[in-house]
Design a protein around this nucleic acid. Sequence first.
DNA 1: GAGATGTAGGGAAAAGCCCGGG
DNA 2: TCCCGGGCTTTTCCCTACATCT
Length: 235
Amino acid sequence: MAQSQTRNISVNVSKTAEVMQLRNGKTEKSYKCSVCLKVISNKSNLVKHMRTHTGQKPYQCLECQKDFSDKSTLSKHMRIHTGEKPYECSECQKGFSQKYNLVIHMRTHTGEKPHHCSECLKAFTNKCTLVKHLRTHTGEKPYKCSVCLKVFTSSSNLMTHTRTHIDDKPYKCLASQKPFSHKNNLAQSDMKPDQCSECLTDLSVKSVLVTQMRTHSGNTLFQHSECLQCFLQKR
DNA sequence: GAGATGTAGGGAAAAGCCCGGG
DNA sequence: TCCCGGGCTTTTCCCTACATCT
Ligand SMILES: [Zn+2]
Ligand SMILES: [Zn+2]
Ligand SMILES: [Zn+2]
Ligand SMILES: [Zn+2]
């Protein structure tokens, strides 16, 4: 397994405070994280917890070289490569690689909406949908277009908007050299690196690296080493 | 009215993080 | 006490129906 140290915070686990914690009616030895003060039941769990502070990712996927801090996350990740989808919906037979993705999917059949808005009577299947909905009450628009400075309630809506800036300026697909003119043929894929090479923004928050262009004949990939927001700022 | 763009919500995919039992 | 593997949460962003603007 490749060892990778992505950030420079060093945390000495052995110096972490031992504390007594009441568990199952008995007081047992526990460990308190020196960074966030969280109490963890045993030392090896604390070691794993510490990786959330250090950014250490000791587990690497041998298929795609992606690093993970958590072994079980890696084993779930491996199902992407194997195509394994062990959890099947009994209603629509759709398969899922992770159990809880099926659990949440089942709500689309049952109509269960566990996330209730505190401001109105609406309820939502997914928590993230509720979070977005709450912004319609607060007026909060945390996502700003770096080209025209318009603001949006969701990263998704910002991305949709961003595409309007390349509407009448078709550019070439590096793979096929064909020019594209229809923005509706543009979609942003979820493939992304850690940072945009221009603004060092975390692309997982701001934008994506790879713009996927769909043609009538299939999919080709247009790649540039920056997020679409930075790409457009330079034009 | 048509096409472009914005808004809000539904949902899938994948990663993050934690805990407890063998 | 350890650590495997399961439990549950969070993040990201695609998609779309409908509204509104030009
Ligand atoms: Zn992989
Ligand atoms: Zn189903
Ligand atoms: Zn509400
Ligand atoms: Zn803009």
